[in-house]
Design a binder for these strands. Structure first.
Lengths: 336, 336
DNA sequence: AGTTGGCACTAACTGATTGAGAGTGCCAAT
DNA sequence: ATTGGCACTCTCAATCAGTTAGTGCCAACT
């Protein structure tokens, strides 16, 4: 049984490296297995019965099935350490990032570059982060700009028009009370925290204050809270033959925010690998997805990962994704 | 001569529609030309001498060269009006956009959708816009957040650490003097405007003020002032056969900000079409690019456009790009 | 002088055939 | 349980002939 798994491992590694169905002969030759091709053939027949490998046609070698990759990945224990130049690349890439936009943009490019796959990075989720500051700026007598700064460094701003003018003193009162109430609190808790907030103000100002609050809540809750950036799509074309001859559906799926968000799912700390048909989305069933959470405080506030062909180097890719996640987490904590 | 151009037009239109080299026979049949195939053949030979069309092999029909498309486009006078559903789509797409990020993101998706090509939209250039407001917020005693709001609705923010604490009064003095000096001015003029700004302050505060100013200038000038978003890359795959069998180099080019920025170039009002080899970038020589400027004030502060195969429906595409640019300009003026 | 029909010519595409190669499954021997 | 041998299957590449689309040119026509 152990030997059989060893053979599966050899098939996966060979196939990932060569892109070609691997036969019993080359398997016996290339790897140091001290058994004959005939024995390997017997084992391969068993592996095929178990649904771990198939042969594309009668007289070809075997290739792993999605299930085969799954077993391979689950038995993967030795985490490949990154090479020195890769480590250096990661170190260099983020230094000098000026704001969150910049950090996210650099991270996604970095990830695409080290893995040679398509990289996706989710912006730190607003829901899971806390209020660092809320600022109210008067642009014109009846036009305000609201700015909400989260502890992840993320900044949302919105402009709103008031029904009537607001005095400078009301404005600064609003500013300080708003911050007193919200600062340090989770964004998700704002709706309850600010429920009857306008009661703090004199009657004439209440309608304007209510207006401001509704926009604040909108910023905190709105759909576009979940943003995803993507990079390295050209890597898809490099692996084109892997995708049933067409990258089109994959590219299409990558353009739908909804699909990407479902892919990234809830931010969790441990690494997650989904292989081929383990995916719900039809268009992505020729791909594998590796994701992991990241965040400044140690527990994950967002997810990042890569998408590639099922025939990918899982060991290297997984350690790269993990390393980048750890690095950007540390960076967010220290710098922004 | 006029007839010859008419034939070129017919060839281009037929080829764009069918994707197949067009021969003299179908040309005579499909279009209402009242001349025989033989005559057409003579004219086609002349067109080939002029370098406007070629035949991929001896016994195939003709296809337009880049130069042929160029002549076709230059003679294009009748601007195709958009269809009613397209107009409606444009109208609906932007309404409800909450901030500049949102406007740009919606615009690029809209453009990709109506043209069925890859769309690129440049953020309104900071250099060309004016200061609406500068805000200085104290996050911690020695940590400030600077926010710069441009009249295009674009918001830049930066965090900086001070060497020493800054009093609340100095802070508000800084805030008001900064705005008095900068408001309404072009960002490009800030470096000279703020040259000796710290002279306005008492000695102990000067070092901090200088620090703030340098960050303000950084925000106004920094390299990442030029941002580009892109959408509809899956449309590339749809037209895959057009790109010498490989979309890879094109995808690669689209990932390089530098290339995109050169593509969008200086924002100018009139529409620009670059066809195939008219492009400097090698990777894009199988594509054509249509760009035009847009901006809230009537004169262009940024550029948007599409990238597609040289074999594209120029008439429709050009009018779509124009319509979207006009629409987003109007929207920026009114709403943000 | 421009236009047209006729015709020989060319090159790609299609489909059938063939031989070579790779890899298997199974069986009998070890 | 492992191995060598061997017949079998299927793909792949090359070849070949027939078909087809489209041209270029020439002589005849308006």
């Amino acid at each position: 049984m152990e030997r059989r798994m060893e053979i599966l491992r050899a098939i996966v590694e060979d196939y990932v490296a060569t892109h070609e169905p691997v036969g019993s002969k080359v398997l016996a030759a290339r790897h140091g297995l001290s058994i004959s091709p005939a024995t390997i053939r017997n084992e391969m027949a068993a592996l095929e019965d178990e649904g771990l490998i198939i042969q594309p046609h009668t007289s070809a070698g075997r290739i792993p099935t999605d299930l085969g990759y799954r077993v391979f990945v689950d038995r993967l224990s030795t985490v490949k350490p990154l090479s020195a130049p890769e480590k250096r690349a990661i170190d260099k890439f983020l230094e000098g990032a000026v704001d969150l936009d910049d950090v996210v943009a650099r991270t996604v490019r970095l990830l695409a570059q080290v893995t040679h796959q398509v990289a996706i990075v989710q912006y730190p989720s607003l829901k899971r982060s806390s209020v660092r500051h809320i600022e109210v700026i008067s642009l014109m007598p009846t036009r305000l700009m609201l700015i909400l700064i989260a502890d992840t460094g993320r900044v949302e701003q919105r402009i709103l028009d008031l029904a009537s003018e607001m005095s400078e003193s009301t404005l600064s009162e609003l500013r300080s009370k708003l911050n007193a109430q919200a600062q340090g609190k989770k964004l998700a808790s704002l709706p309850t925290l600010l429920e009857a907030f306008e009661g703090n103000f004199a009657q004439p100002a209440q309608v304007n204050v209510r207006n401001v609050i509704s926009v604040v809540l909108e910023m905190a809750i709105e759909r576009n809270e979940e943003r995803v950036v993507i990079s390295g799509t050209s890597n898809l074309a490099r692996h084109a033959p892997d995708f049933n001859e067409s990258v089109h559906p994959v590219l299409e799926a990558l353009e739908e925010q909804v699909v990407l968000l479902r892919l990234l799912g809830e931010a969790v700390d441990e690494m997650k690998v989904r292989i081929g048909h383990e995916q719900e989305d039809k268009k992505l069933q020729s791909t594998s997805v590796i994701t992991t959470g990241y965040g400044p405080t140690g527990d994950a506030v967002a997810t990042l990962g890569i998408i590639g062909p099922t025939r990918m180097d899982y060991a290297t890719s997984m350690s790269a994704v993990g390393a980048v996640a750890r690095y950007v987490s540390r960076f967010l904590q220290e710098e922004i």
